[in-house]
Simulated assay, not measured.
Amino acid sequence: MQAKPQDSHARWWPSSVTADSPASWNEPSQLEAYKMTSRPRGVCLILNNHNFAKAREAVLEQKNLKDRTGTDVDAAALTRVFSKLHFIIKEYRDLTAEQIRETVNIYRCKDHKDKDCFVCCILSHGKKGIIYGVDGQEVPIQELTTSFTGQNCHSLAGKPKVFFVQACQGEACQKGVTIETDAGEQDSSVETDARFQLDCIPAEADFLLGMATLQDYVSYRSPRQGTWYIQALCQHLEYSCPRGEDILTILTAVNQEVSRKSCNQNAEKQMPQPSFTLRKKLIFSVN
């Protein structure tokens, strides 16, 4: 007798309820969106470090950190886009490590109860889970993000906290020609932003951390055109937000665009990486 073919659905939908499954299954509901109607929406804090002369003057491991030429192009793009999205722009340039901490603490202590969101854009050199102040001193990125948890910033509890970090996460290059790194100069048209590492997002809900590149890899910056990541991010925000697209869809498009870029004939590559604990759709409405 020929065996009866097994129902393929039975392999995926068990008839009995197991210990780690709900007692009953409901139809999935439409994903709710975060409230994004306040005017202004909130603060967009830009920490823009360009001049690292203090670090080079110090007798430190980081004394050879180069100036981040092109970072002002990124800061201008972020200012333009987030102003259109109804955020208050607060840019701080060339901060030491202690000044970074002090600045973040100022906005941690502010009352955000009438705002819907908080955005922080960090443009600096970094290495292994830290960013550098212009004095070459280290600030753990997790220290900055954790400052805005519900426990540490009550008025942002339940609201999206968004961080965009332009910095490398390692020393490895994603296959291609040798270009300028922090150790030498082979191609002055593109540079890297030191070294950086992920695992910096708080375990608490409502955070989004947009990283310029994958862990262990470098990211690239043009002295004339800004960084691949921030420029693509701003272009896609400007194009897609008026169309009502959510931030994760936009960041996927950013991933696609940046991953297609390359340097010279051997095609050095870069792959951004978002990490998030968002519970709802995050849509930056322009209305």
Score class of each variant (00 low, 15 high):
K115S: 10
C117Q: 00
V119T: 05
C120I: 07
I122Q: 14
S124N: 13
S124L: 14
G126D: 10
K128A: 15
G129M: 04
G129Y: 03
Y132E: 12
V134F: 12
V134A: 08
G136C: 09
G136H: 06
V139Q: 13
I141G: 03
I141H: 05
L144Y: 01
T145A: 05
T149Q: 07
T149H: 03
T149P: 11
G150H: 13
G150P: 10
Q151H: 12
C153M: 01
L156N: 01
K159V: 06
K159T: 06
K159M: 02
K159G: 02
V162M: 13
V162G: 00
F163A: 06
V165W: 12
C168P: 09
C173R: 15
C173T: 08
C173W: 04
V177H: 11
I179Q: 10
T181K: 07
D182Q: 15
Q186F: 01
D187P: 00
S188A: 06
S188C: 12
S188Q: 13
S189P: 01
E191H: 05
E191I: 01
D193G: 11
A194M: 13
Q197R: 14
Q197L: 12
L198Q: 07
I201L: 03
I201Q: 04
P202N: 00
A205K: 08
F207E: 13
L208Y: 01
G210T: 04
L214V: 04
D216C: 01
Y217K: 05
Y217Q: 04
V218L: 12
S219N: 15
Y220R: 09
S222R: 01
S222K: 04
R224P: 03
R224G: 00
G226M: 09
